[in-house]
């Protein structure tokens, strides 16, 4: 990442291992619905973010995710008719048919909500710790055109966002406030979109002027050896991936929402969840301790 010598382990490590680490956490949330596993991944994600000093980015993402997750929980509770614990029986409704609110549907809805929050938080951690410039640099070696498109797109997001913000401010400077409602919004969107082509051409011109299209390969043997931070994060990422594969292959942390919620909660699951947290936080904790010494 964009890190100097004073930054934390996850920000110092090379992008490839950070990406592996982040993807492993996201993969856990995608592969498991077991509440213990999800809570463990949440603890690991927020712990890693705090130890890396990127908790602010995570908080922003979670703030965005919570309304979405709550909506998902409510929709699941209302629309899913599975489950045996009926809380409220609405009877037969046109179009919907038999509508019952069940405890299992609501519980599973909230679990899905937790899962969404964890996925978004882990993705936010991934974005915060991976240096996109480094990723593009590596991509360029194998997929020049894709990397060019990605470089242009990543830069354009920032440029167009700022264009839109400035144009919105300019709209508010009009004596009539620039109007309101859908028409004003459409005008703004249309205007930003119309300018996008010019902006893209300018950014592409800059890429040309910096010699992107005629890139010469770096000299052989110019690779950087793995530093302590790289090794620490790689070890954590490999540990997480090993746990993930083991859990999936051996069917650990089993969870069945319907017809009655069945959650496996013996020592194996507890140990599994604890190992996830330990593997994830090993790099930031041990790496920092080793550095202070």
């Amino acid at each position: 990442m964009n890190a100097g010598s004073n930054s934390t382990v996850l920000l110092r490590a090379r992008s490839s291992v950070c990406a592996l680490y982040g993807f492993a956490l996201v993969a856990f949330a995608l592969a498991f619905t077991h509440p213990l596993v999800l809570l463990a991944v949440a603890a690991a994600t927020f712990g890693a973010a705090r130890l890396s000093g990127v908790q602010r980015q995570l908080r922003g993402a979670v703030r965005f995710a919570i309304p979405l997750a709550l909506m998902l929980a409510v929709i699941n509770g209302i629309l899913v008719r599975d489950g045996v614990t009926v809380l409220w029986r609405f009877g037969e409704l046109p179009l919907f048919g038999q509508l019952d609110l069940t405890g299992e549907a609501f519980a599973y809805g909230f679990l899905l909500a937790l899962r969404v929050v964890v996925i978004i938080a882990a993705s936010a951690l991934l974005v915060a710790i991976v240096d996109p410039d480094d990723v593009l640099r590596r991509m360029r070696r194998s997929a020049f055109r894709s990397a060019l498109t990605a470089a242009l797109a990543t830069r354009m997001i920032g440029v167009l966002t700022r264009d839109a913000r400035r144009m919105d401010q300019a709209r508010r400077c009009r004596p009539d406030g620039g109007g309101s409602g859908r028409r004003a919004q459409l005008l703004m969107v249309g205007s930003v979109a119309a300018g996008a082509l010019d902006r893209a051409v300018d950014v592409a011109a800059t890429l040309e002027l910096r010699g992107y299209a005629t890139r010469v390969a770096p000299p052989r043997g110019d690779s950087v050896p793995y530093a302590r931070a790289d090794r620490a994060v790689l070890a954590s990422a490999v540990g997480l991936l090993a746990l993930l594969i083991t859990g999936v292959v051996f069917g650990l942390a089993n969870f069945e929402p319907y017809p009655r919620i069945t959650v496996a909660t013996d020592l194996t699951e507890l140990l599994y969840a604890a190992l996830i947290v330990l593997a994830a936080l090993a790099a930031p904790i041990i790496g920092e301790r080793g550095r202070r010494r």
Binding site: T154, R155, R199, D202, T214
Partner: peptide
């Protein structure tokens, strides 16, 4: 070359990467 609008004159995410970019494109060693 430096064109007029600095907003579209940077293409990387960080200042360090931006300055390194033209040098890397010339195939210089790390």
């Amino acid at each position: 070359t430096l064109l007029q609008d600095p907003e579209t004159q940077v293409v990387m995410q960080t200042v360090g990467a931006e300055l390194a970019f033209p040098l890397e494109n010339r195939g210089l060693s790390r």
